[in-house]
Design a protein around this nucleic acid. Structure first.
Length: 472
RNA sequence: GGCGUGGUAGCCAAACGGUUAGGCAGCGGUCUGCAAAAUCGCAAAAAUCGGUUCGACUCCGAUCCACGCCUCCA
């Protein structure tokens, strides 16, 4: 059985066996949302990928500690809270609440902690001070503190950025005159009038932390100076993650992160979905169109995380159909009755083989497509047995259990959801009336009964053993 | 300009130097009063042009196209 997980490490640009710092444990840091608005489904592609990663790590018996930060102070958050005439905290609280609701709707397993930037200012100040003490940072004329990239020769090792070849000129903004070098980035932003009452005291005067320093300070606090995995969207690779590495390694003198995993974008009409382009859907948009979190979850799970995924409503519809078939399938499997000798040893073997294929697929840098092929393969084999009438409860049990195992990773099969569904007595009565009419060859009446059932929200299906009623 | 990714059947999407990926949709058979579900089967592919090879969707090169990062961004 394959038990060796491999991940594509952005740092080395190749697949590497995952060997954690501490055997059996995995520490993971995830760049979370900036809470000035509702997250869109492109954002959720990244959170879904991270959920998949954590679920797979757990499937392989790792004890996972996931930390996801909340960026609750930055230029846009300040700007929009001022527009809304609300204190920063009150403004972000609304979107933090919405974010957690959305995670739940998508059945994303919660992280261990969700540290907020504004709750960790002392840690950030300490980190900036360490960088100043070690000669990596300086205060400019505008009172802000900057990281001096020239002092960190390894700068660019993650993104493979060669500073010589960067386009000259484009990065210069009018307010950056104070920096020693254009590429230097802010660790601490000095307060200015536009920030209103958003400010914290520091040894360098009032201000607020720079974006990159937030993640470094919080990840170190919860996971240590060196930790296993850091994830995020590919657009965070540069400059955000590159800057995190520079700050953290300069301050600590040791490797910051051992495995970097980056998720590709969700596209819509061939362009990346983003707030700045305005071409996005929020989860709430989809819910209001009648789609479910489960259906979106299925769609987002459908492509490998390092490949761009084009979002379409067709895909959502196809996903809905697939899930419907699964619901029906599990209902039939729960009700399995044999007309021939059942063979539990055969189904146990089927389950075992599927398990092996499933693990091998996921171990290969989270190849969900192949894992899904295994899932569908087992479904097909199971259907054949059901069709042949050679499954009873005992023979079905190992199969059901295997699907439950699969769902620890997929999180949307709902294997047991239809099991205990109570069908109202009047619906049963109606179905029985239809059955009687059919026997009497009164098909007009039988069809009328079926229409009535449909109106009540049920479908009736005729099987060799009798009828079967299920919700529409 | 620099760095990078990708172009697979109607749609979505994998693996792999030679053997059916898979899903949705479609077509035909079985089952059914009709349906539905299921099942069996079928069809359909590799942007273009070269090269390497006994053999290439898979390796190499060129071309075209799309997309991303270099600026807040999952």
């Amino acid at each position: 059985m394959t038990n060796e997980l491999t991940f594509f490490n952005t740092m080395s640009r190749r697949n590497e066996p995952f060997v954690p710092l501490v055997a059996g444990k995995a520490g993971l840091y995830t760049c979370g949302p900036t809470v000035y608005n509702f997250a869109h489904i492109g954002n959720f592609r990244a959170y879904m990928f991270e959920d998949l990663l954590c679920r797979v790590l757990r499937y392989f018996d790792f004890d996972v500690t996931q930390i996801m930060n909340l960026t609750d102070v930055d230029d846009k958050t300040i700007r929009d809270s001022q527009k809304a005439a609300l204190p920063l905290k009150e403004f972000t609280a609304k979107y933090i609440k919405a974010f957690f609701e959305d995670l739940k709707t998508l059945n994303i397993v919660p992280a261990a902690q969700y540290p907020a930037a504004t709750e960790h200012i002392p840690e950030m100040i300490a980190l900036v001070q360490a960088l100043i003490d070690r000669g990596y940072a300086y205060q400019a004329e505008d009172k802000s503190i900057y990281f001096s990239i020239d002092k960190f020769p390894e700068y660019g090792k993650l993104a493979h950025i060669d500073r010589e070849n960067q386009r000259a000129g484009v990065r210069v903004k009018t307010d950056e005159y104070a920096k020693d070098s254009v590429a230097d980035f802010a660790l601490w932003k000095a307060w200015d009038v536009g920030d209103g009452d958003v400010k914290w005291d520091s040894p360098w005067g009032p201000g607020r932390p720079g974006w990159h320093v937030e993640c470094s300070a919080m990840s170190m606090k919860y996971l240590g100076k060196t930790f296993d995995l850091h994830t995020g969207g590919i657009d965070n690779m540069f400059p955000h993650h590159e800057d995190e590495i520079a700050q953290s390694e300069a301050a600590n003198g040791c490797t910051y992160v051992r495995y970097w995993l980056h998720c590709a974008h969700l596209m819509v009409n061939g362009e990346k979905m983003s707030k700045s382009l305005g071409n996005f859907f929020t989860l709430r948009d989809l819910l209001s169109k009648g789609y479910t979190g489960r259906e979106l979850r299925w769609v987002l799970l459908g492509a490998h995380y390092r490949k761009k995924l084009n979002f379409t409503f067709d895909a959502l519809e196809a996903g809905r159909e697939t899930l419907r078939k699964f619901d029906d399938f599990f209902r039939r499997l729960h009700a399995a009755e044999s007309t021939q000798p059942a063979k539990p040893e055969e189904t146990r073997q089927l389950a075992q083989d599927a398990e092996a294929g499933f693990r091998a697929a996921l171990a290969d840098d989270l190849n969900v497509s192949e894992a899904l092929a295994v899932l569908f393969g087992l479904q097909r084999d199971t259907n054949k047995l059901l069709e042949a009438g050679s499954l009873d409860a005992a023979a079905a049990a190992p199969l059901l259990e295997q699907f439950r195992q699969f769902d620890r990773v997929f999180g949307c099969l709902e294997v047991d959801a239809g099991k205990s569904e109570a069908v109202p007595a009047e619906v049963i009565a109606l179905a029985e009336a239809r059955q009687a009419a059919r026997k009497a060859k009164d098909f007009a009446k039988a069809d009328a009964c079926r229409d009535q059932l449909k109106a009540a929200g049920y479908v009736v299906e005729d099987t060799p053993g009798g009828f079967r009623v299920k919700p529409l």
